[in-house]
Amino acid sequence: MNPRRKKRLMAIVAIIFGIGTSVALVLFALQENINLFYTPSELIEGKGPDKQKPYVGQKLRIGGMVVPGSVVRDEDSLFVEFKLIDTGPLVTVRYQGILPDLFREGQGIVAQGHLTAPDTIEAFEVLAKHDEEYMPAEVAEAVKGIKHEKPVYNIPKGY
């Protein structure tokens, strides 16, 4: 191989290695910012054909209906705890802050936060739908067929 071809080959290999390294670093950095959407059923039972569950500490979004009678507000702070449901199990959402004006029981919401237990989310953002017609497409698909009946649910004293 003559020196000119060898130089070109080394330059091409260096460029490919540089691009590969850059892509790997970008994907690694984005991994921290990716937040997957779950419904309460998917969170508890797993998502997809392999029933993959999120790990504790993972950043995620969850959407569902606020269970009537489950909203518990702390009298001394802005801490709120409520339950979400879709067609299956309940998930607890804990939030410290001011809830949207349109937030109410029996309403579809999307909460963004970190998983602190297999069925508990520590939310840093709670979003409620705009009006009676609008619901995010992910939530609308997830809550299709839900009967809006008040479930039998007892909240322990002290919350």
Rank of each mutant, 00 (worst) to 15 (best):
F82A: 02
V72K: 06
E125N: 07
F79G: 05
D131G: 14
L36E: 14
N33M: 05
G97T: 05
D76E: 14
K53E: 14
L84P: 01
E105C: 00
H114T: 04
D76S: 11
V67G: 00
L78D: 15
V126S: 04
Q31V: 08
G57D: 09
E42F: 07
Y95H: 04
Q31S: 13
E42S: 11
D101C: 06
G64D: 00
V56N: 15
I85C: 03
V126H: 03
V71K: 06
I44F: 12
P49H: 14
Q96K: 05
L36P: 02
Y95K: 00
K53G: 10
L115K: 05
F79I: 07
D74E: 15
K53T: 13
V80Y: 05
I109Y: 00
V72L: 04
V80S: 15
G88M: 08
P100T: 04
T87V: 09
G57S: 11
P54C: 10
S70N: 05
F103M: 04
N35S: 12
V126C: 05
Q112R: 13
D131A: 09
D76T: 11
L43I: 08
P40C: 05
L127A: 12
I34D: 03
A123L: 01
L115H: 06
N35Q: 12
P100Y: 11
G48Y: 13
P118L: 08
L78H: 14
R61M: 11
I109F: 00
G106S: 02
L99E: 09
T116G: 03
I98L: 13
L43K: 05
I98V: 15
G106C: 02
R94C: 02
